Every structure is written in C-alpha cells, then in structure tokens.
Simulated scan of single mutants.
Amino acid sequence: MADNTAGRAPVGLVAVAIGLALVATSIFALDWTGARFSDGGVRYFELPSRVLSSNAQQTVDNPSGFAIAYFNAVGVLLFVLIAALALAATWPGARRPLLRTTAILGTLAALAALAVSWAALGGESQILGGPVVALAGYLAVLFGAMVGPHR
C-alpha cells in the first residue's frame, strides 16, 4: 500500500513538541505556587522541602504521599516517559497504533497525576504558573498523540 502522506505537515509531532516544551518550561523555569509565600514563588524542585515536608516552615495541610513523590521524582519521570512515547508515536513515517495508544494513555495518567498533585498544593498557582503551563502542555501532547504523525 502506497504512503499517500508525503508532503503533509506532521501536525501531531508539532503539537507534541510544543506541549513538551511547555511542560519542560513549567518544571524547570516557572513558579508553582507563590500566593502564600512572602519571599516569592516556589519552583517545582523546591516544593518537597519548602511546602510539602513536615518540617517546612509553610506547609500544605496534610499533603498526600503521592504529591510528595510526584514533586520529588515521579513528575519528571512521567515527563521523560511521555516525551519518549509521544515523540516516537508521532514521528513522521511512524505507523505504530499501539505506541500511539500507549502515549495517549500515558499522557492521561500524567494529567491525572498533575491534577492530584496540584490539588495537594491547594489548587492555587500564579497566572501562567507552573501547573497551568504544565496542564496546557500535556493537553497539547495529548492532542498530538491523538492526531498522530500525519494529519
């Protein structure tokens, strides 16, 4: 069967790349919470020690163990896994329906993990803060994985 997708823009790949860039920006560059801190915002990797640990000065009431794990390592590991799956599933010429399905399910799991962890922070963030940008990024990845390599 001939490939009739030659010359088509890889919309899925572009959406995945934009989404992954947004998630990476949220993890490495943006504040995740700041409304209750007088000394400014708190970045992703500072959350376990400054907000979620039992000996932090300003803590969240009863943070879940999952939220602590998410901000320690799980969130970044999910991001790396989703990046590998979604890029491989949407790479031009890829005809891997199982890989696309796995990327979609993984992205849905990452969205659920983000929602649970964000709720542990009280659901607050700055406008265009880390959780909001990560949410937009994962939604773009989900769209790209659903569209696939050629649409």
Rank of each mutant, 00 (worst) to 15 (best):
T5D: 07
T5R: 12
T5C: 09
G7R: 06
R8F: 08
A9E: 10
A9N: 07
V11M: 09
V14H: 04
G19N: 05
A24S: 10
I27V: 15
I27T: 03
F28E: 12
A29P: 05
T33F: 03
G40Q: 11
V42H: 06
V42Q: 09
R43S: 12
Y44H: 13
F45I: 07
P48I: 03
R50H: 02
V51I: 12
L52S: 01
L52R: 01
N55P: 03
D61V: 06
N62D: 14
I68A: 07
Y70A: 00
F71T: 01
F71G: 10
A73H: 10
V74K: 09
G75K: 00
V80S: 02
L81M: 13
A83H: 04
L87Y: 07
A89S: 10
A89H: 03
T90C: 07
W91F: 13
W91N: 09
G93R: 12
A94S: 15
R96E: 08
R96M: 13
L99A: 08
L99S: 04
A103C: 00
I104W: 03
L105Q: 12
A109L: 15
A109N: 11
L111H: 09
A113F: 03
L114G: 00
V116R: 12
G122K: 00
S125I: 06
L128N: 12
L135P: 05
Y138R: 05
A140V: 07
V141N: 02
F143R: 08
G144K: 08
M146L: 15
M146W: 14
V147H: 08
G148R: 03
P149M: 04
